[in-house]
């Protein structure tokens, strides 16, 4: 009893801290941890929604066997999804870093460029982008090639025809172009994060660099990049999650189609397989990053 009376300010503060986070802990348990366990169980069971509740039957590894051996599309989709992530995420990361650093400097027209570059952040995520790409991809362009968004930007096919290169190379270039568009449009939030990260680097460091006679290039490698290391990790994780859950992602689309037909077990198995692959790859990258870059900068 006496101990309770003499509790210090630290104990009191820790209690207040707990008071603040209690709702969040409840939320985490009810709407995050518990559903995660449930969906992990769903992987190994046959889940059906019937009148008056759900019916679950333990089926062991059936779902996993099914998606890998019997499903005609999943293995392909998984490979394609992972491959897309593999080449888009690094490009998004680097591109948004370059743009973020550029936009955080002082130059004429900065406000205008910022307004333009935040546009993707405002409306990219989702349906509109999916629609745009769908309409540029094939259908409209078959009517009139100029109508396709990416090939309309720069008329690649004509340039290719002019230089006399084979058709395949032209196709490849126009695919890459539309890929670039996709990538730039998914850079929105990342640019915002980088700009805000750039503001936290003290100006003093650059002045010291100038006194020491560092070039711009050295400034980037020895001041900007190490100071941005936290932002880079955050942006990497954000980019991976964002790309993985975009509406153009093939695995997500397939899993959602399965959910429509109430094959919850299989959908769950697909989602978690995909997520584990992505998570393992991201974890590896983060580990390497910590091991070889972040620790050296410390």
């Amino acid at each position: 009893m006496k101990l309770k009376k003499h509790r210090g300010i630290e104990t009191l503060k820790s209690r207040y801290g707990l008071m603040f986070v209690t709702p969040w802990i409840i939320g985490l348990l009810l709407f995050f941890v518990y559903p995660i366990f449930q969906s992990l169980i769903y992987i190994f069971s046959d889940v059906r929604v019937v009148v008056g509740g759900t019916m679950m039957k333990w089926v062991g590894l059936d779902n996993i066997n099914y998606i890998f051996q019997k499903d005609p599309e999943f293995a392909n989709n998984l490979g394609q999804g992972l491959f897309t992530l593999l080449y888009t995420c690094p490009v998004i990361l680097i591109l948004s870093m370059i743009i973020g650093i550029m936009l955080s400097g002082q130059f004429k027209g900065r406000l205008f460029f910022r307004v333009v570059y935040f546009l993707p952040a405002i409306m990219a995520a989702g349906s509109v982008l999916a629609m745009l790409f769908q309409y540029q991809a094939g259908d409209v362009s078959s009517i009139q090639s100029d109508e396709s968004v990416s090939s309309g930007m720069i008329d690649v096919s004509e340039i290719i025809a002019f230089t006399g290169l084979p058709q395949q190379i032209g196709d490849f270039i126009s695919t890459t172009l539309s890929g670039i568009m996709n990538i730039i449009w998914s850079c929105g939030i990342q640019i915002v994060l980088f700009i805000s990260g750039m503001q936290t680097i003290p100006e003093l460091l650059y002045e010291v660099g100038k006194v020491e006679g560092a070039t711009k290039w050295e400034e980037f490698w020895f001041i900007t990049l190490p100071m941005l290391s936290n932002v880079i990790v955050l942006v990497l994780v954000f980019t991976v999650v964002d790309a993985m859950t975009s509406q153009t992602d093939v695995v997500m689309t397939q899993a959602y189609a399965l959910m429509d037909s109430q094959l919850y077990g299989r959908a769950s198995a697909m989602l978690w397989t995909y997520f584990l692959c992505v998570g393992a790859a991201t974890g590896l990258v983060l580990w390497l990053y910590n091991r070889f870059c972040a620790s050296r900068w410390q």
Partner: peptide
């Protein structure tokens, strides 16, 4: 960190059923 990294699509099935 998990909340940032695990997208809500992963738990959408049990959430819907719940």
């Amino acid at each position: 960190m998990l909340l940032i990294f695990i997208p809500s699509q992963m738990i959408i099935i049990p959430m819907t059923i719940n």
